[in-house]
């Protein structure tokens, strides 16, 4: 692989429709995204800001479920990008933890990110992910103590998700200044790649984050592009061109 940071896009399944969301995910891969975070719609997305809430709300009301998510995983896998599911815990638990792990692996998924599941509560998920040979990605935050940082990183497989700021998802004018320090703290105790998320929306910000992290995660900006698209085709074109801009950014490490 080239010596550059990876680019990760996030989009929720089911906005504006299941099919259109899969097409948009594939479009981000076409624009140069390496990994697609496939969002499971959830009625109570406590870590998400208004942009993602708005899209996810449409998907929840349409009754989008794990079967649709697994179709998205297959679609992304066929496009050549790496599919990783992002889900709050209750939809996974309701589907069945073991069943989720097996079906995700069978669909070609690489693993799952669980924003409201801390390793303290994750023994069942860790065991299921191990059996299915899946990555499990937990989050670390600027407020994490050294003890928790080490515990969380050692529970991760695949990569560590560093929340760049104290807050919810959403585009910000500036990427947090505490993110580089958090990445350095993780690097000091773990050999896993560190991906930085929350607040990145432009090529310049991607370049900045790519300067110190192994991967750059962009979510709300892609969702915003879809929300602003006149129709699904326009939305797909918009996310593809945003992906291309960000892909240039991660190759420019500032």
């Amino acid at each position: 692989m080239e010596n550059r940071a990876a680019l990760i896009s996030y989009l929720p399944v089911g906005y504006p429709t299941v099919e259109a969301s899969i097409e948009a995910m594939v479009a981000t891969a076409g624009g140069g995204v390496d990994v697609v975070e496939i969002g499971v719609p959830y009625s109570d997305p406590g870590m998400d800001g208004p942009t993602i809430q708005q899209a996810v709300d449409v998907a929840v009301r349409a009754g989008v479920g794990m079967r649709d998510v697994l179709r998205a995983v297959e679609g992304v896998a066929e496009s050549g990008a790496v599919p990783v599911v992002m889900s709050y815990w209750n939809p996974i638990e309701r589907y069945g933890v073991d069943r989720f792990a097996r079906d995700l692996a069978a669909a070609g998924g690489a693993g799952a990110i669980t924003p409201d599941l801390i390793p303290d509560e994750a023994s069942e998920w860790i065991a299921a992910a191990d059996r299915a040979d899946l990555d499990r990605v937990f989050l670390v935050a600027p407020s994490s103590t050294d003890v928790r940082l080490a515990m969380t990183a050692s529970a991760c497989r695949g990569f560590v998700y560093a929340a760049s700021t104290m807050g919810v998802t959403g585009a910000r004018a500036e990427v947090s200044s505490v993110a580089p320090a958090l990445v350095a703290r993780v690097r000091a105790i773990s050999g896993l790649p560190v991906a930085v998320g929350l607040g990145v929306s432009t090529g310049a910000q991607a370049a900045e984050v790519a300067g110190y992290a192994d991967a750059v995660i962009v979510g709300s900006a892609f969702v915003r592009a879809l929300l602003d698209g006149r129709d699904p085709a326009a939305g797909a074109r918009a996310v593809q061109s945003l992906a291309a801009e960000l892909a240039v950014g991660v190759r420019q490490r500032s």
């Binding site: 870590m47 801390i118 303290d120 509560e121 989050l139 407020s143 994490s144 103590t145 929340a163 104290m166």
Partner: peptide, 14 residues
């Protein structure tokens, strides 16, 4: 019971 929260809140809960 337990804690099903973002890691960012754990320090405050502690």
């Amino acid at each position: 019971g337990g804690r099903y929260v973002p890691e960012a809140l754990v320090a405050a809960l502690d």
